[in-house]
């Protein structure tokens, strides 16, 4: 589903990734672990095609990323670490704008149903400006529920989430992988999710990979 081949990435005149490779198959979930500043977000931005690596190749569904530039949104969903929400719009308006940008048409009933999964229905008319950091994160993660793609890439999706929402997130991820989807996400703390592989990114050239890392559910 996703293949990253020998990526070399420099940022701000510093090499942050050297010969980095990764393969994500169907029904798998990979966690990128690492301290702040080791390059997790840069790696995910590179996979999303926002940053060009110095060398190396990225394949989505077997096709090189360069060839699918305009079709990316149909093949995978990327949730960056920023919330991507307009402060002066309500939760519902932000979701509707995201749906418009993704050319997804969905009826009101389904929108409200999905907003309720993270308990956002009652506050759907509130301006994003008045929400807490965790609530904003929940709105961002709600976008995943509308996505039709098999591959999800998320940067720090658990940041600021309360325990109840983390459990909801776990259920959503499990459901997605069981349905044949794949997830790649980053975190600076180990979220104790049921993941297939954990990749610990350290400072340059010190990448530790733990295969078949299965954790028990919910100690959070």
């Amino acid at each position: 589903m996703l293949e990253v081949k020998s990526i070399y990435l420099n940022r701000n005149k510093k090499q942050i990734l050297s010969n980095f490779s990764l393969t994500l198959k169907k029904k798998n979930m990979i966690l990128l672990l690492g301290d702040n500043g080791v390059g997790k977000s840069s790696l995910l931005d590179t996979i999303a095609g926002l940053i060009k690596p110095q060398s190396g190749e990225i394949f989505i569904e077997g096709k090189p990323l360069k060839e699918i530039e305009s079709k990316k949104k149909k093949l995978f969903t990327y949730i960056p670490h920023e919330n991507c929400l307009r402060d002066n719009l309500s939760i519902e308006e932000n979701i509707r704008i995201w749906l418009l940008l993704n050319s997804i048409s969905i009826n009101d009933k389904d929108i409200f149903k999905k907003l309720n999964i993270f308990n956002l229905f009652d506050i759907k008319d509130q301006l994003v400006n008045n929400l807490s950091h965790g609530q904003k994160k929940k709105v961002t993660l709600t976008k995943l529920l509308f996505s039709n793609t098999k591959l999800w890439i998320m940067d720090e999706p658990l940041n600021g989430l309360d325990q109840k929402s983390v459990k909801v997130f776990k259920v959503i991820c499990e459901k997605h992988t069981k349905a044949g989807g794949a997830i790649l996400f980053s975190s600076h703390i180990d979220p104790k999710l049921k993941i297939t592989k954990k990749i610990t990114l350290n400072k340059i050239n010190n990448i530790k990979i733990t295969n078949k890392f299965f954790n028990k559910w919910g100690n959070l």
Partner: peptide, 17 residues
């Protein structure tokens, strides 16, 4: 500014615009 700060500029580019 707001689109830059909240990551929307990044999101728009990812979405293929």
């Amino acid at each position: 500014d707001e689109d830059f700060k909240n990551g929307s500029l990044k999101e728009l580019q990812f979405l293929g615009f």
